[in-house]
């Protein structure tokens, strides 16, 4: 029973981080129609920046804020330097079919991932480093009994729900959020209605950059930081986003927690080597049985 409970708690706290990664993917998918495979590379980069600041005796919170800002800046840079010029080429003969239009940004984002990982290797020597937590990461003691979750777990979950609330409010409750939804749904009509599509796209890349750098900051205390550590989070985040329905914020968070629990149970009751296989089975099952995910938009949808 204790094992079961601790699997639930560790799954929930890991799930919160996967939810953030999935949220980041959904933000860019909704805002710009691209699945960003470089996302966790950006997160890795901004976490290295935070780690360097901490190594130079700055406080955790200054490093935290700087990492979020640099994560957002990196997201904006990716859009301005690569994705926007790529979007302008849509009339070229190479990009004139829908199949290639959705494929080529994926290839570009893989290139960005490679550049970020190589740059981190060159700058930070690819040494594995630990990363601190802002609050105690020992088991909480309530009523004299040690609990299977920590203050840090609560901190992580608080941040995830805060992010979900903020992004949902932004999309549903603000004019800019409405503009973002409109420009993702139908760029031409949105442009004719006076929405600055380019700006809106860059904004969604920026917000996604902030969300994924959050995921990076929160996951690295339990996994050493190296240029490749966060690749696994990308895979899990992608699966979580697909499970939730690639265009639903709440769905991606649910997907994140579901994946967290699944992976935790595979870890505890089976073997860690089976994680990839479990992810693959979940991904294929969802894509075949319910391609629109748990909360994805209804209607005919070709994935």
């Amino acid at each position: 029973m204790d094992i079961f409970l601790s699997a639930i708690f560790s799954g929930t706290s890991r799930g919160a981080i996967y939810a953030l990664a999935a949220l980041g993917l959904v933000l860019v998918w909704r805002g710009a129609g691209v699945v960003n495979f470089a996302q966790m590379g950006q997160a890795m980069f901004s976490t290295y920046i935070a780690s360097t600041l901490i190594a130079h005796n700055y406080s955790y919170w200054i490093a935290f804020i700087v990492a979020l800002i640099s994560g957002g800046a990196l997201g904006a840079l990716v859009d301005l330097a690569v994705m926007r010029p790529l979007g302008r080429k849509r009339s070229s003969s190479f990009l004139d079919s829908p199949a290639m239009r959705s494929t080529v940004p994926v290839i570009a984002s893989l290139g960005i991932l490679g550049v970020l990982q190589a740059a981190a290797g060159i700058i930070w020597a690819a040494e594995e480093r630990g990363f601190p937590t802002p609050v105690n990461s020992l088991g909480l003691v309530i009523g004299g009994k040690s609990m299977p979750f920590t203050a840090f777990d609560l901190f992580v979950m608080g941040i995830v729900f805060l992010t979900l609330a903020a992004t949902t409010y932004f999309f549903k409750g603000t004019g800019m959020g409405l503009a973002m939804r409109a420009s993702a749904l139908n760029p031409e009509v949105a442009r004719l209605s006076g929405i600055r599509i380019g700006f809106v796209r860059t904004l969604s890349w920026t917000i996604s950059g902030v969300a994924s750098s959050l995921a990076g900051l929160l996951v690295t205390p339990s996994a050493n930081l190296s240029p490749n550590t966060l690749d696994l989070i990308l895979i899990i985040g992608f699966t979580a986003a697909v499970v939730g329905g690639l265009d639903s914020l709440l769905g991606s968070v649910i997907g994140g927690f579901a994946l967290g629990l699944l992976i935790s149970f595979v870890n505890v009751y089976d073997a860690p080597e089976d994680i990839f296989l479990a992810i693959l089975i979940v991904l294929l099952t969802v894509l075949i049985i319910r391609p629109q995910g748990i909360l994805g938009s209804k209607g005919v949808r070709r994935v």
Partner: peptide, 23 residues
């Protein structure tokens, strides 16, 4: 499995396969 998928869905699924098979 893949005939039903396209673009980023196909990319992500094949990426997971690339990790799952060698494991």
């Amino acid at each position: 499995a893949a005939a039903r998928l396209s673009g980023p869905y196909l990319a992500g699924t094949t990426l997971v396969i690339a990790l799952a098979i060698p494991s």
